[in-house]
Design a protein around this nucleic acid. Sequence first.
RNA 1: GCGGGUGUGGCGGAAUUGGCAGACGCGCUAGACUUAGGAUCUAGUGUCUUUCGAUGUGCAGGUUCAACUCCUGUCACCCGCACCA
Length: 801
Amino acid sequence: MNYDFKSVEQKWQKIWEENKTFEAKEDYSKPKFYSLVEFPYPSGAGMHVGHIKAYSGLEVVSRKRRLQGYNVLFPLGFDAYGLPTENYAIKTGIHPRKVTDDNIKNFTSQLKRVGFSFDWSKTIDTTDENYYKWTQWIFLKMFEKGLAFRDKTLINYCPSCKVVLSNEDSQGGKCDICHSTIVQKSKDVWYLRITDYADKLLEGLKEVDYLPNVKLQQENWIGKSTGAFVDFSIKQVDEKLKIYTTRPDTLFGVTFMVIAPEHPIIEKYKDKISNYSELVDYKTECAKKTEFERTQLVKDKTGVKIEGLSAINPINDKEIPIYISDYVMMGYGTGAIMAVPAHDERDYDFAKKFGIDIIEVLKGGDITKAAYTESGEHVNSGFLNGIVDKNEAVEKATAYLAEKGIGEKGVQYKMKDWAFNRQRYWGEPIPIVYCDKCGMVPVPYEELPLKLPKVDEFKPGQDGESPLAKVESFVNCKCPKCGAPARRETDTMPQWAGSSWYFLRYIDPKNDKVFADKEKLKYWMPVDWYNGGMEHVTRHLIYSRFWHRFLYDLGEVPCKEPYAKRTAQGLILGPDGDKMSKSKGNVVDPNDVVDEYGADVLRTYVLFMGDYEKAAPWSKDAVKGCKRFIDRTFSLLDIVNDSEEYSEKLETSFHKTIKKVSSDIETLKYNTAIASLMTLLNEIYSAGSITRKELKTFILLLNPFAPHITEEMWQLAGFGGMLNEASWPEYDESKCVDSTIEIVVQVNGKLKAKLSVNAESSQDEILSIAKEDEKVKSAIEGKNIIKEIYVKGKLVNIVAK
RNA sequence: GCGGGUGUGGCGGAAUUGGCAGACGCGCUAGACUUAGGAUCUAGUGUCUUUCGAUGUGCAGGUUCAACUCCUGUCACCCGCACCA
């Protein structure tokens, strides 16, 4: 019988849709399972096989959970604000609203062709006013709590995209979107005070089940360090220079100080500084350096001594010089450091170049050759002398500083506050009004959503002004507080805003009273399993944990952490082994695969192609292997007999396969789960026929991977009802072991024979059978047996000399 | 430089965690069926060797009756972060 995948797949997709087969039920008596995949950005290019792989993992888990009796929520929506759409609109003149709607339609129909069991009744679109109403609502709550604020500061600015970028969006000094070089600019921008949540975000990691490297990357991103702040007084003026250090115990080794070129004391005391113009020249020079130059010249330290100001080391009252250098940055700590050249590589390089004293305060290295950065016995350190333990010394030093009032314990994070605005059209308007009398006034909650006005011109202004600034009817408004004429904020939110809470809206997407009903949240949250790409681990994942934790503190959500478990899939590379990209022309379109082989084959292949968590190249030939597997599965209908039991021959294999497929699905080992089904299929064909019970089990095990063909076979075999109403097969542990087992016989670790013995055989029996074997006999002939090793059920090793 | 990871046939990848290396799939070889085959089926397929056998998981050592797996050193590639005081 030939399998006509085209008509079968269409038939079942239609039935599933009509029957609302995969809609989550509001039946709280059942155990729930919330599986979440990262929602796509609906680009004009359409779906990519990478999307298919990303969704297939939890698709399999979700289908299995339904068969296991769970009430499953497996939704998908669209993260539709963003630059590509806006740039496309600028180029073509087509409104982003229309572009977005078209792309969403296209994505949806492509996804439906693959037969994913998403609950489409719960879909969302972040650009829908009924959605972004609540994004704005959360922003206002943050504003209320002082977590959203405006500050004039140096920002990362992309001259090509004409937008302000967060640190996360400008890694390596390049724009994340267009890869142009970022420049620093002073501007008033919106921030979200994510640093207030640094500790909570760090703490929360302890209670979740994330991949170890995901946790690690988040920890590194937050970058917590503990140490101390120390005040150094400046000799010539009444001013303290505050520094941050992780090693206050090395204070006796300080021989100079370094401040960032932008440090404010330079301006403040320029009258006292005799070489002020030299310092300004250096600062200008530094500002010109690109990020690339800065990192390339790491080892070659530059700087200028400040003439006219010097510092006093508070621990021994010694006078020390102050330098400016770009190896100290204004953005971390206090923008000033105490330099301990003997025990810090950067300070060492700097001291060598400028001929500054190097004083050893930790024994163990040779400071004439290099900085010694390990721990060791304290020397030349007054009250710290003799202490070896680093922590003890740090504690003692910190206590001393506090006692003398010259310093205190301190904590620093690498993570910066989140620059939360873009000068762009296609984003959520920030619901704030500027009034001359009242200052910044939030748009009242009942006036939300603050709608994005329809415009025809999407280009940002010359100086990076938002396109909204030109829309008079939007900008001009009345102050909600005093009624006086006022102006609206014209910046919009960054792309990360909408995705920071979308998993909450899926639970209750049509609610117009609250962002989601509390009872529903209580039942469905947290997300049980969240899968996505490694590239979102430090941005989206941290941002959304931050928003969720904020909502928890507000009492709006029932749990601290949004995601109980997080995994990540590996990329699909092009057939040439390179990352897929339009420019290389190595992109595989899932539509073509569905057309040629069918959705079941596509789904099976993306999971079979290799380790789910690793990158693997696409192979057009290997897809055919999955096609054969699907076709051969269908032909099982030709060899089915009437028995309603497992056959003697295959019973053990079936129990083993149920066990393996069940556990492999839980540990992302989809490739070996499918491989074991292929093995079982081969065994069935060797056996010549399949019982009805065996067919039923096989169909159920394959169903999460290949739902269309299994649903069709279920119906053709007359098992009754829809497949999703059936139960996941059970296995019996005692039936997973064969009655006869194969024992490997080695002599001196080398394979000599394989014995087929009864599983019940004793060690002595097996040994004596082993020694009867001709090859074993000749291998041990004339030698003394020194040792006999027996590994139960596996092998015998005879050591003979 | 720091952190994490990977290295197994012609290819993608398995290996119950120290116990038969190469499951499963692709590709390839031979055969069958066929007007035909880029369809299907059967058999074979790490390397060397005619056989016996030897050898084999990046490389060099070590531990062990036994090592892809553990230890020491080393090389290569990939992914993060990048002067974080």
